[in-house]
Amino acid sequence: MPENRREEDSYEYWLACLHGVGNQKKRYLRERWRGAAELYNIEETRIRSEELLDDKEMEAFQKSRRNWKIKENYERFCEGDIRFIPYYSGEYPQKLKELPAMPYALFVKGRIPAADCPAAAIVGARRCSGYGEQMALSFGEELAKNGFIIVSGMAKGVDGIAHRGALNGGGLTYAVLGCGPDICYPRENKGLYRDILKKGGILSEYPPGTMPLPIHFPARNRIISGLSDIVLVIEARERSGSLITADMALEQGRDVYALPGPVTSELSRGCNCLIKQGAEVLLSPDELLRESGIWQRISKSDNSKNSLKNKIMLESTENLVYSKLDLYPKSKEKILQETGLGAAEVIRALVALELKGYIHEISKNYYVRHK
């Protein structure tokens, strides 16, 4: 990189990291003074005379100019494997440029989402049920298999499971963090963090080293929805970050889908409320793909496997037990009650169905259909 370009970028990096001045105002300042270098070196009296910054912003601006080491900080940044993509860069995602509150810059590890691929955000409860876990995995996997990029926040629960589903489906997935892209949050997702970098990227509007503060997460949700064409909400309480993402998606003109659930479930109240307010009902990956207009049939080999599986005849007892199960967890006691069978018969049937791949025990004595 030419020395003059490197110097110019070091000032641009300073402006992107400037804390205490909003994104929109940063863009205006940069364009008003034809770049960050001139802005950094401007006389204080001149910028004060234009009354572009209030007292608090002016204090943050002056403090940063006094304390920021332009060359040293940028060289340290360049030693890492993180890219800095400001809003005026050709690499900056076009979908984000359409947002009034677009980030001034993105800090990226790995790749950024391709503009020509459909993208789905999958968000939901951190403490999801087995039902939510299975649906997040299924939607992530099937959409990825059919050409969708999966975007989420790498949080516990639905977010992380949706990323994993996309990876299982051989697709691309991108995590938007509420901290610097060099920080894996939550820590227990370290393996997922590494795997996402192999098949996608980690993005943030926060510079490297920024800790995951609660105030960052509502703001990052606008990026998750902004990078996506559709937003899927898989389980959400009445007041949750997922509903913030859904609201932002609607403001951005994105289609919002919500997974229905039992009216007695706290985890489904947010989704059921979204549906009541007009969100699309999320029923199955196949139906969503058909509605999205890019439905692709599963490969012949997969169809053959499914056909073969459907032709397998179950024993009458197994068939009865299987008929009482669906994608929502059901206890062994409830199955006994609904089938009228003896405990030994039900247990034998459950074991046989699980060995054949028809059902899955998601927790002690609670079962769901595999798909």
Rank of each mutant, 00 (worst) to 15 (best):
R6Q: 15
Y11T: 02
L15I: 04
A16H: 06
G20K: 06
G22L: 00
K25F: 13
R27D: 02
E31R: 13
R32W: 09
N41D: 11
R48V: 00
D54F: 14
D55H: 12
M58T: 02
E59D: 13
A60F: 06
S64V: 03
S64F: 00
R66L: 10
I70E: 07
E79I: 04
Y88D: 09
S89F: 00
P93L: 15
A101V: 09
M102F: 09
K109H: 12
A114H: 14
A115Q: 11
A119M: 03
A119Y: 03
S129W: 05
G130A: 06
G132W: 01
F139P: 02
K156H: 06
G160S: 06
Y185F: 11
Y185Q: 01
N189P: 02
I196L: 08
G209V: 03
L213K: 15
H216K: 01
N221Y: 11
D229N: 09
V233D: 07
V233P: 03
E235V: 14
R239M: 05
S242C: 07
D247R: 06
Q252H: 15
D255H: 07
L259W: 13
L259V: 10
S265C: 12
L267W: 04
C271H: 01
Q296A: 04
K305P: 10
K305Y: 15
T317I: 11
N319V: 04
D326P: 09
E333S: 08
E345P: 12
K356M: 01
G357L: 12
Y366T: 09
V368D: 01
